[in-house]
Every structure is written in C-alpha cells, then in structure tokens.
C-alpha cells in the first residue's frame, strides 16, 4: 500500500513536469473542452429565448447553469485513455509498462488526476468567466453540494474503469478509432452533453437510465443544479455503484484476456 502511495506521488511529479513542458497541448485540450458545452449552451439559450424564455423544464438561465456545470463535471470525469492505449499498443511501448511490478492502471489513474488538478484552476476561471457572460441560475441545496462529492468521485471511477476497459480493444484490433467514435457518440447523446436528458423522448430517457453514460456526466450535473430529490440522488448513487461493480468485473476479465493476446502478438 505504501509502495502504491509512493508511485502515485512520483507519477504526480512526472506528470506535472511534463505538463509544464507541454503547455500548448494543455491549451488545445482546454479549448475543445470549453467550446463544445459553450456551443450547446448558446444553441439552447437561443431556442429558449425564441420559445419565450424556457424549453421543457429549463429556463434560459438554467441552461447556462447546466452547460457550465457540465463543463466542470466533464473535466472531472474525462479520460483520454482510449487514444493513449491505441498508441501504446501500436508503438509497442506497452511492453515496457508490462515489465513494471505494478498494474499499469495505477500510473494511468495518477496521471489523469494530476493533470486535471493542474488544469483545474484555469477551468474554474473559465467557468467564472462564462458565468459572468451568461448569468446562470444556480442555487443548489446544501445537501446536494455535499452529496456531489461522492457522486463525482463515483462518476470518475465508473468512467475511468469503463473507458480503460474499452481502450483495451486495441489489443485485438488496430482499428480502434471506429470503436472509439461509436462510444463517443453514445456518450454525447446519452450522458446529457447535447441537451439535458429530460428534453429527450421518454424511451431515450429510459435507455439513458439503464446505460452507464448518464451516471458519469448528466447525473452529477442535475444533482448540482438542485433538480433531484434526495431519493433520486440515492437511486443515482445506487446506479453508479452497480456500474462500478460491472465495470470492475469487465476490467478484470478483459485485462486477463487482453494481456495474453498482446504477448502473443509481440512475441
């Protein structure tokens, strides 16, 4: 356990050093992360404005709050492991990782968390700037803010495990871009990134409730907007825990099989 803690600390230092070196890539990463929610914020604000100040159960200012909070929540739970894994397997750098005496997921987790901590101040600054520009209406009850802490941690864990597991498809095929694209489209629509899920038809909402994507992004956002009752929040946490368990099981199974395939190819 202490060895693992040392590893996380070391990984944090390494990531920090490389982040300072590659500031430009950080900026690019931020731009795409800010621009997408910003575009949908503007689109939905326009729709709402045309429709007399609200669409469904969202007013113009609530849309602003929704997409600004979504930007932050997405920042917390986002991973880039699917691109990274493809590169590792294609270039063969994964062989070195496998030689290390700890599971490679640990350095990935540490890497993810540390680079996000570094970018967080800038992200918050951007959020404040957007808040000044779009006047969001955000007044969550105290309990929701407190509950958001475990919910965000769970959202991060579910998303990380699932995407790490999916990233391993690179062991089997070199055409992971197509797989990734399908995944991103599903996330885009069913997590609430294009529009709040309550604006979708009932069947879509049902599918979104069953699949994991909503629990990674949309659910924390709705909680932070104060749109959920305590019972709904608890149900959501339950769904997150269930998906965490499923994700963990899949991760174990796929990892065992995947490493075997990789060694067979690399030999």
């Amino acid at each position: 356990m202490r060895g693992l803690a040392a590893l996380y600390v070391q990984q944090f230092k390494t990531t920090f050093a490389s982040m300072v070196q590659y500031r430009a890539s950080l900026v690019i990463w931020m731009i795409s992360h800010v621009l997408e929610p910003l575009v949908y914020l503007i689109v939905w604000s326009t729709v709402s404005y045309t429709g007399g100040g609200s669409v469904g159960d969202y007013t113009t200012r609530e849309f602003a709050a929704y997409f600004i909070v979504l930007m932050l929540v997405n920042h917390v739970s986002y991973t880039w492991i699917m691109y990274e894994f493809e590169y590792r397997v294609r270039e063969g750098t994964f062989s070195v990782t496998l030689l290390k005496p700890v599971h490679p997921i640990h350095s990935d987790i540490a890497d993810n968390i540390s680079s996000k901590l570094i970018t967080l101040p800038l992200m918050v600054l951007i959020a404040l700037g957007l808040a000044a520009a779009f006047h969001p209406l955000l007044a969550p009850p105290m309990w929701a803010v407190v509950a958001a802490i475990p919910v965000l941690i769970l959202a991060f864990m579910v998303r990380f495990l699932l995407e790490w597991t999916l990233a391993q498809s690179a062991f089997w095929t070199t055409r992971v871009t197509a797989i990734n694209q399908i995944y991103f489209v599903l996330v885009l629509f069913l997590s609430g990134q294009i529009a709040p899920l309550t604006l979708f038809p009932a069947p879509v909402q049902l599918v979104a409730a069953i699949l994991p994507f909503r629990w990674m992004i949309g659910f924390p956002v709705e909680l932070l907007l104060g749109r959920l009752s305590p019972v709904q929040a608890l149900t959501g946490i339950g769904a997150q825990v269930v998906w965490l368990a499923i994700g963990f099981a899949l991760f174990r199974i796929v990892w065992r099989a995947g490493v075997r395939v990789y060694s067979a190819v690399g030999a």
Binding site: V43, T46, V47, T50, G51, V55, G56, I194, A195, L199
Partner: peptide, 13 residues
Amino acid sequence: GLAVVFSYTNTLG
C-alpha cells in the same frame, strides 16, 4: 443533434 434542437423550435436565430 439538429433533430433534438428542432423538436423544440422551428427557427434557430
């Protein structure tokens, strides 16, 4: 994406 947006409005800006 267009379909979702235009299910709530018939003119966008």
